[in-house]
Design a binder for these strands. Structure first.
Length: 214
DNA sequence: ACCCAGGGTCATA
DNA sequence: TATGACCATGGG
């Protein structure tokens, strides 16, 4: 049993299921992934709620109004000009697949990932969030918490790039897609839970309960 | 007032 | 490759 599997079990038993992604549709997950970039989830959630209020939480409708009309509706998510443009470009790309997630599902994961990465403001974490939480592909989502927590645990040096960290999980974590879903959500939960002020803090995970895992 | 939050991009060395 | 600046709102 690899350490990554044991840490997952610990996190799950400690925090319980996180029920990600908090959205009703695959489209809402995707838009949410863009809006949540580098802002608190509550900020992103307000923007999504605002779109829903205006009955714009569908690809066709959102595509029809354009970036200039989207921007003021998502102000609460920050970077609203960049994000509005990103949503508009994504929707333009999505027209090639008839605004259909069924059609998207026909593509292999690697191809989909490369396509998504071509789009503005869709970097590795956002692309993987869409792949995992909207399309249910077995992809590990790496974020700043992942790097920080697992570096503190001594399992990473802190100098690995995104892909290297992702491969570490793909090779060693033997979970289902649902487990991949929970793992990332639990890491975010744990990252907020413990002291997250840079390198060291006494009452953090290492001193308190992460040692028990290892 | 400062820091950070479910990042990405671009310029610079 | 590796930093730094920038985007921008809202809560602590």
């Amino acid at each position: 049993m690899h350490i990554l599997n044991r840490i997952f079990q610990q996190l799950l038993s400690h925090y319980g299921p996180q029920h990600w992604w908090p959205a009703k549709t695959q489209f809402e997950v995707t838009i949410g992934a863009l809006l949540a970039q580098n802002v608190s989830w509550t900020n992103a959630a307000k923007a999504i709620a605002n779109l829903e209020t205006h009955n714009l939480l569908s690809a066709q409708k959102l595509h029809s109004i354009g970036a200039e009309a989207i921007a003021p509706l998502i102000k609460s998510s920050g970077y609203y000009n960049q994000k509005a443009k990103a949503i508009a470009v994504f929707l333009q790309w999505f027209t090639h697949y008839d605004f259909s997630f069924e059609t998207l599902q026909e593509l292999p994961t690697d191809t989909l990932r490369e396509e998504l990465l071509q789009l503005p403001r869709i970097g590795p974490e956002t692309a993987d969030s869409i792949l995992l939480y909207a399309l249910e592909r077995k992809i590990f989502v790496v974020d700043a918490y992942t790097k920080r927590i697992f570096t503190r645990l001594g399992l990473l040096t802190g100098h690995e790039d995104y892909v290297a960290i992702q491969e570490y999980f793909h090779k060693n974590f033997t979970g289902t897609v649902h487990d991949y879903n929970e793992y990332h959500a639990l890491i975010v939960k744990h990252g907020k839970d413990v002291c997250n002020k840079r390198p060291h803090c006494d009452k953090c995970c290492i001193e308190n309960w992460c040692k028990k895992i290892i």
